[in-house]
């Protein structure tokens, strides 16, 4: 499967990765190889086969009840930047 540098750049944007030129070239080559390898799945007829996303079928639900959570200061203890009890991020709107 041929994957182009442009494809890789597009995927990097979707994945929120600022790849360098060198990384883009390397991943174009390596992803191409891996995608060629996985093409072998095309040999199998999977018409009418249900996909498996989880191996156990029992999905357990619990009651929607309010319960205590970790205190605010502990939740914020790992924040790179915080202000007034909130996570602080760089400007969103220019």
């Amino acid at each position: 499967m041929a994957i182009t540098k442009k494809d890789v750049q597009h995927v990097a944007t979707l994945a929120r990765l600022a790849l360098s030129e060198k990384e883009t070239e390397l991943y174009t080559e390596q992803m191409g190889k891996i995608l060629t390898y996985v093409e072998k799945l095309g040999a199998l007829d999977t018409k009418n086969i249900e996909p498996t996303t989880h191996t156990i079928s029992s999905r357990i639900f619990r009651k929607d009840e309010a319960k205590p959570s970790l205190p605010q200061n502990e939740i914020l203890s790992n924040a790179p930047e915080k202000a007034k009890g909130c996570f602080k991020v760089p400007r969103i709107i220019e």
């Binding site: 994957i3 494809d7 890789v8 995927v11 990097a12 979707l14 994945a15 929120r16 990765l17 600022a18 790849l19 360098s20 990384e23 390397l26 991943y27 390596q30 992803m31 891996i34 995608l35």
Partner: peptide, 18 residues
């Protein structure tokens, strides 16, 4: 994310996103 993740992790994120 570019600074924080190593090459194999980026490769897998890229493959999965694709």
């Amino acid at each position: 994310r570019d600074e924080g993740f190593g090459p194999e992790v980026k490769r897998r994120i890229m493959l999965g996103t694709y």
